[in-house]
Amino acid sequence: MLYRIIDADDLPSLIRAFMDSYELVAPVKHGPGYIFDVIDDPSDVVLDYPTTIASPKKYFLPSEETLFKFDVASNDVVDFEIDIKPRVLFGVHPCDLNAIERLDAVFLDSRYGDPYYRARREATLIVGVGCMPTQNCFCHRVDADEAPRGYDLFLQDLGDRYWVSISSVAAAEILEESTHLREATDEDRALFAAATHRRTAAFDGSIPNVQDIAMLMDTYHSDPFWAEFGSRCLNCTACAAVCPTCMCFDIKDILSPDAKTGERVRVWDSCNSPHFARVAGGHNFRADERGRVRHRMYHKLNGFKVKHGSMLCVGCGRCVNACKVNINPIEVFKFFDEKTRSSAVLSKEANDAE
Rank of each mutant, 00 (worst) to 15 (best):
D188M: 10
D188E: 11
D188H: 11
R189K: 15
R189T: 11
R189H: 13
R189V: 09
R189Y: 12
R189Q: 14
A190W: 08
A190G: 10
F192Q: 12
F192N: 08
F192Y: 15
A193N: 09
A193V: 05
A193Y: 00
A194T: 00
A194G: 05
A194V: 00
A195W: 01
A195I: 02
A195M: 09
T196D: 08
T196V: 09
H197A: 15
R198G: 01
R198H: 10
R198N: 04
R199W: 02
R199T: 00
R199M: 07
T200H: 12
T200Y: 06
A201D: 09
A201T: 09
A201P: 00
F203I: 00
F203C: 01
F203L: 00
D204L: 01
D204I: 05
S206K: 14
S206N: 13
I207N: 03
I207Y: 01
P208A: 11
P208S: 07
P208K: 06
P208D: 06
N209P: 02
N209G: 10
V210K: 07
V210P: 00
V210I: 10
Q211G: 13
D212L: 08
D212S: 14
D212V: 05
I213V: 15
I213W: 01
I213A: 01
I213T: 11
I213F: 00
A214M: 07
A214Q: 06
M215W: 12
M215V: 14
L216F: 07
L216Y: 02
L216H: 12
M217C: 12
M217K: 05
D218Y: 13
T219G: 04
T219E: 15
T219M: 15
T219C: 10
T219A: 15
Y220T: 04
Y220L: 04
Y220P: 03
Y220G: 02
H221F: 14
H221G: 05
H221K: 14
S222I: 07
S222C: 07
D223N: 09
P224D: 10
P224S: 06
F225N: 06
F225L: 02
F225I: 00
F225M: 02
F225Q: 03
W226G: 02
A227V: 13
E228F: 12
F229I: 04
F229K: 03
G230Q: 03
S231I: 06
R232M: 06
C233H: 05
C233P: 01
C233V: 08
L234F: 13
L234E: 13
L234W: 10
L234N: 09
N235T: 14
N235E: 15
N235V: 07
N235D: 15
T237F: 09
A240C: 10
A240Q: 04
A240T: 14
A240P: 04
V242F: 06
V242K: 01
V242A: 06
C243D: 04
C243Q: 06
C243R: 03
C243P: 10
P244H: 10
P244F: 10
T245A: 09
C246N: 08
C246T: 11
M247H: 15
C248A: 11
